[in-house]
C-alpha cells in the first residue's frame, strides 16, 4: 500500500465517518438525558430523503438541509411524545420510527418523483461542494505534509468540518454549562432534577430535539454531500453503527470521534478492497462489513472495559408514590 493509497483510504474514512459521528453525537445527547434512541437510522433516512427532495426541487442545498432537519425533528417529536409524554417503551418507539421512515420515504418519493422511490440526481447548488482550505493548492507539493493537508484535511464539505467542530462543542456543553449539568442529571436521576425545580420533561424534549437536529444533518450529509440524491434505504444500517459507536464511546464526545473514525475506516477498507489478503488468509468483504457489529458485541460483552449507560436510561420518569 503506497502513501497515496493510504491517504485515499483515510480521506474516505473521514467522509464515511462523518454521518456516523453526527448520528453518534445525536444519540449521545438523547441517551445522556435518559432517552434511548434506536431510531437514529429512521431519522437519518427521513432527513436524507427530505433534504434530497427539497434540494432537487428548489436547487438549494441549504433549503434541503433545513427540510432534512425538519423531517428528522418531526420523528423526534413522535419519539418524545411516546417516550416522554406518554411514558411508552423507548425501544419499541425507536423501532416504529425506523419502519415509519423506511416506508414513508419510499411511498412519498414514488408519489412525488415517480422514479421508483428515489429522488432525481442532485447537481450544482443542490449539493454541498468541497471546500478548499487556505493554501491547500500551494502547499500541495510540500513532501508528506502537503498531500496530507491537501488531500486529507482540505477538500471536504462544510458538514464534515461542522461535525468535527461539534465534538469539542458537545463536550463543553455537556460538562461546562448549566444545561449540560442538568441534562446529565436527568439521565442519571430525574427525580433529583424534578425536586430541584427543573422540568424533567422540558430537558428531555430539548435533548431529543438536539438529537433530531444532529440526525437531520447526518441524513442531509448522506444525500446531498456524500452522494447526489436519495435512494431507498440509503442509510444502510448507519444508524445502528452509530449506536454501536456510542456504546463503544461510553457516551463521551471525544471517544465518539475515535469510535466513529474507526468504524468509518472499516467501511472505507470494505469499500476499497473486496477481499483482503493478509499473508495467506483471505478476509472476505462480508467480514469487514460485519466487523463494526462484531466489535460492538465484544465491547458489550465487557471484554474491553465495561460500558455503563446513564442510570435512568430507557426508563420513563414517573413520580413515585
Amino acid at each position: 500500500m503506497d502513501f497515496l493509497t493510504v491517504l485515499q483510504v483515510l480521506d474516505s474514512t473521514v467522509r464515511l465517518a462523518t454521518p456516523l459521528l453526527l448520528a453518534c453525537l445525536a444519540g449521545l445527547f438523547s441517551e445522556r438525558a435518559g432517552i434511548f434512541d434506536i431510531g437514529l437510522e429512521g431519522k437519518m433516512l427521513a432527513a436524507a430523503f427530505m433534504s434530497a427532495a427539497i434540494a432537487a426541487v428548489s436547487g438549494s442545498v441549504w433549503l434541503g438541509l433545513l427540510a432534512g432537519i425538519g423531517a428528522s425533528l418531526l420523528l423526534s417529536a413522535i419519539h418524545g411524545l411516546a417516550s416522554i409524554t406518554f411514558r411508552g417503551n423507548q425501544l419499541i418507539s425507536g423501532v416504529a420510527i425506523n419502519f415509519l421512515a423506511a416506508g414513508l420515504t419510499v411511498v412519498v418519493a414514488q408519489d412525488w418523483f415517480q422514479q421508483g422511490g428515489r429522488t432525481p440526481s442532485l447537481i450544482g447548488g443542490g449539493r454541498f461542494a468541497p471546500i478548499d482550505l487556505p493554501l491547500a493548492k500551494s502547499l500541495q507539493d510540500v513532501p508528506v505534509l502537503g498531500p496530507i493537508y491537501h488531500d486529507l484535511i482540505s477538500g471536504h464539505t462544510i458538514l464534515v468540518y461542522l461535525a468535527i467542530a461539534l465534538v469539542p462543542l458537545s463536550w463543553w456543553a455537556l460538562f461546562r454549562t448549566r444545561f449540560g449539568l442538568r441534562l446529565r442529571a436527568v439521565g442519571e436521576n430525574p427525580a433529583a432534577v424534578d425536586t430541584a425545580g427543573v422540568s424533567v420533561i422540558g430537558l428531555r424534549y430539548a435533548a431529543v430535539a438536539i438529537c433530531g437536529v444532529l440526525c437531520g444533518i447526518a441524513g442531509a450529509y448522506l444525500a446531498t454531500a456524500l452522494q447526489a440524491g436519495f435512494v431507498k434505504d440509503m442509510t444502510a444500517g448507519r444508524g445502528y453503527i452509530a449506536l454501536a459507536a456510542l456504546i463503544f464511546a461510553k457516551w463521551r464526545p471525544w471517544y465518539a470521534l475515535s469510535a466513529t473514525l474507526l468504524f468509518g475506516f472499516l467501511q472505507a477498507i470494505a469499500l476499497r478492497y473486496q477481499n483482503i489478503d493478509l499473508g495467506g488468509i483471505v478476509v472476505p468483504v462480508q467480514f469487514m462489513d460485519a466487523l463494526p457489529y462484531i466489535l460492538t458485541v465484544v465491547i458489550l460483552a465487557g471484554f474491553v472495559g465495561k460500558a455503563i449507560p446513564p442510570r435512568a436510561g430507557g426508563e420513563p420518569y414517573v413520580k413515585e408514590r
Binding site: 449539568l181 446529565r184 442529571a185 442519571e188 436521576n189 433529583a192 432534577v193 425545580g197 442510570r311
Partner: peptide, 17 residues
C-alpha cells in the same frame, strides 16, 4: 434525590445555578 455520580457541589447547585 441525589445524582449518584455527581459531586456534592454539583448536586447542590443543580437547579440553582
Amino acid at each position: 434525590k441525589l445524582v449518584q455520580n455527581f459531586t456534592v457541589l454539583e448536586n447542590v447547585i443543580l437547579g440553582a445555578e
